[in-house]
Each structure stands twice: as C-alpha cells, then as structure tokens.
Design a protein around this nucleic acid. Structure first.
Lengths: 254, 254
DNA sequence: ATGAATCTGCGCGTTTCGCGCGATACGCTC
DNA sequence: GAGCGTATCGCGCGAAACGCGCAGATTCAT
C-alpha cells in the first residue's frame, strides 16, 4: 500500500471514529509507529486532522480550519475591532442581517448579550459564531453551498432573503472602491449583496483598510441607497477621501 | 484566582484562538504546567476541549461533539447499515432529499462517489457528511435553527422545500408506528416531513429497530402516498408485521 | 477555630515525539 | 536492461511532554 493511499485511509478512519491511536494505526497498516507519526504530522500540517498525545482527532468542522487560519492572519485584530463597533450599533429586539465572511463573523461573536435578537445570515462562519442564547433566533438563508466562502448563494438564497427586511444589514466585501462599489469574485455574490443592501434599513459595509481601493476580482456592484463604510484605524486619509466626497459616511473602528 | 474560574478562562482563550499551549497558559496564569495539565485533563474529560501534544485545541464545532457521542452509541452500527443501503438506492444524476438526523447523516456519508448528484438537506449533521466532490451539489434548506436537532425548520424551510421535487427522499423519525405514522417532538417537524414526503418521488423512512412502535413524543403524521420502511436486522417479525399488513414495503439493512 | 475537601507544586518514571541515518522500493531515462 | 533520482520506510537516540503520587497550602463549611 502506498503512502498517500494509507493517509487517505487514516483520515477516513479518524473521521469515522472521531479518534485513532498511533499504536492501533500502526498495527492495522502493518507499519512502524514512526511511519504513522510521519503520516499524522503531514496530515496535521495540511489541517486535515489534529494531533493528540498518542493519536489523532478528527477536526472536520468546516469552519474550524478556516477559523484557525483566520485568527492567525494579521488583519484579525482589525476585523475584530470592526465587528465590535458594528455589534454596538445593534439594539435588542432588532432583526439583523449578516453577510457571509470572516469580518461579519466577528460581528456575530460580539452580538453575544444583545437579546432578544433575530439574526439572519448566509454564511456558516458567522452562523457558528452566534451565541446559543435563549433570546437569540438564528436563521440561515439556505441555498447552494460555496465551499470557498463557506456560504450559500443562488436563487434559493435570494428567494429566502426576499421574505425579510432588516433594521441593520452588515455586508462584507472582497474589496471596496468609491467609484465602482463592492467587488466580489462572481456576479452571483454581487447580486446577493445588492439584494441584501435593498433589504436593510441601515446598511453597513465592513472592510478593513487593505480592502479599500483594491481590485482583486471583476464582479462589481453599486449599492443602492445610503450606506456606511466601516473600516479600521489603519485606513489612510487618501483611502477615505473618495468615499467621503461622495457623501458616504465612514467610520474608523478602534 | 480559583481553579474553576481559570478553567473557564482557558476554554474561552482556547475557543478564541483555536489553540493554546501548556507552556503559554502556565505563563499567563502564573501556575506550573502540572496545574495546567490537570485543568486540560479535566476539560478534556468533560468534552469542552481536546488535548493535543503540548496544548489544547478547541472542538466546539456544534456537530462534532454530538457526532462523537453518536458514534459511541450502540445503534450506530444499525444506522450505518441503514445509511449504506439507502445510499445504494441513489443513482448518478439524481436529486436527493435528506431529512435532518444522524441516520440520514449516514446516508450522506455513503453517498461519496455517486456523482453527479444534487443533495438537498435540512440538517447540518447530514450536510457536513456530504463529500466535497466536484460533481456534488450541496444545498441546504435554510430556516430557523433548532439547536437540539441541529436542523432548520419553519416557514422559510418549507418555502425553500416548495421549490423542489426529488427522485429520492430519505426521512428520519423519532419513532414510527404502522397505525399513527411518524412521531416527532413538535408539529413543525411533522409538517415539514409531510411536505418532504410529498416532494419525493420515492420516499424512504429510515428508522432502526428501537424506533419501531415507540411513542416518545406526541406529534404524529401519516405520510401521504407510498413509502418504504428501512430498518436494521434487529427488527423482529412482530415489529414489522403491522407495517406489511398495511402494504408498506419493509427493508432490513445488513 | 477546626476538620474536610480541594488545589497546588515538585519530583520521578513512563510514554510519546521528532530527527537523522542508512536501506529499500519505485519510476524514469538512456 | 542498467543507471539513477526520488520517495518511503524502519531503526535508534535524545528531547519533550505526560501521568502519578506525595506533601504543603488554601478554601470552605460547620
């Protein structure tokens, strides 16, 4: 049996049982524990499993892996600050929309304690950050699953969204410019964001400084109506000026 | 600082960062690594965290914990057999509905390799078991989240379901009797199941032997149309007789 | 105030880990 | 078919982390 094949099998076994020990795996495959350890080390590095003392544990939660990477990223602090400020705009009793994304996930995390509250989201990342409070109603817009963004898009999502209006709508973005609006990887995403903005009474676009003025993709949308740009203290005056000159309120979270 | 308080804080820190090392924790709290190790051991036993070599990892993925418990339960083997049989009924190119629940999650797990496929589900447990195949379209019916069943219910779910029909519909159940049909904890669930059955061309009810004839709750529904009862080899002839005498096809998975 | 229960630090033996080395198997080229 | 590079494996050793028992300290209730 080849090594890659054995590693796949290890992942399968670990996920099936939740746990697996080095000793047991070595016996099953008829190799030394050293070999198993090497395999586990490889799998651990590629985030498919987590090592434990004497074995492995399955960490298949889809958001877990990304969450870990996210927290290690340098802009996590900025996103958290933005999320905290945004959560502060929410008052008990309201109905709130959270777009998919790691920044809106930070909003969700800081929503803890604001109760009662109805939170609607299209992303698993923010969804799982929502507290299991008694007064918290958690609603997921279903739809077609996009693995890369851990979110739902498509006609089903849009149809579900069509049944709501929101006191606050918090949108994420891959990039934002004053001239072209919000940038995303695909038109299905920009269309969804447009609908989201339409459904929100007060609309906030959350984007840390690195996203201001960037153009990583080619799908753009101008948000309808008024909205507020929330970014972090790292944003420069030059970055903010074009927004303010167009009458867009800008906020620096800190 | 008291020990329970410190342990809470450790959980909080681990969840916030995903990871935490023994060394770092010992420094932060100003105690020896032994003490930290004891804490981690305690928290590990109570399933709040998972130990790793040199630290801990957060495993608060909502389904992970339940998944582990589920696999330890004695009826897991039966559910898996049922799931394997059910997955065998699915052919490439079809559109399939999976109800929420641990049994339908086993169906999802065995759907791996059947491609292309469109799978629609209302439960997170089956959803996360679905493989990330290229030909696999994963669709989640959104709605209001029920923590206990890790699934979505309510008008939004029903509205989303209304947009589909399915080649195969696999329903779970808290209990099944020939006389009264499917039993659930609440009417919102039974109503959803009724709609699911209506949307399915071929309908299967998956229930291991212990669920046949039981009456744990008080919300019942008679499924419309024909359906097939799939159970495990542990079901007795007396349990099956009432179903067969009513013309319901029964299958013993093995 | 006093006794029980819990918690903590320390030391020790045990287990697991990671790394480097040499050997082996596989695939590719000429 | 011979030669050669790459990937993989088993083994041994030193290091790191672990669990356990014991004794002193702290907390809490009576």
């Amino acid at each position: 049996m080849r090594a890659p094949q054995r590693r796949e099998e290890i992942v399968r076994m670990a996920r099936s049982n939740g746990l697996a020990s080095v000793e047991h795996l070595a016996e099953v495959f008829g190799v030394t524990q050293s070999t198993i350890r090497r395999d586990l080390s490889t799998l651990d590095k590629s985030n498919q499993l987590a090592r434990t003392y004497g074995g492995v544990i399955a960490v298949r939660s889809p958001h877990h892996e990304a969450s870990l990477q996210e927290r290690a990223s340098e802009c996590h602090g900025a996103k958290d600050a933005i999320g905290r400020w945004a959560a502060g705009q929410v008052e008990p009793g309201q109905t709130v929309l959270l777009d998919a994304g790691t920044t809106t996930a930070r909003v969700a995390a800081h929503l803890h304690g604001t109760s009662p509250l109805t939170v609607v989201t299209s992303g698993l990342t923010p969804f799982f950050e929502l507290a299991d409070d008694s007064g918290m109603e958690r609603i997921l817009l279903g739809g077609e699953y996009r693995e890369v963004s851990q979110s739902f898009v498509g006609p089903l999502t849009e149809a579900a969204l069509d049944r709501w209006s929101f006191d606050r709508a918090f949108l994420g973005a891959d990039a934002v410019t004053a001239e072209r609006g919000i940038c995303e990887a695909s038109p299905v995403q920009t269309r969804l964001k447009e609908l989201m903005a339409r459904a929100g009474d007060q609309v906030y676009v959350l984007a840390h400084a690195a996203k201001l003025g960037a153009t990583p993709f080619n799908a753009w949308v101008h948000l309808p109506g008024k909205w507020t740009l929330v970014t972090d203290a790292g944003a420069t005056a030059e970055q903010l000026a074009p927004f303010e000159s167009r009458g867009i309120t800008t906020v620096l979270a800190d």
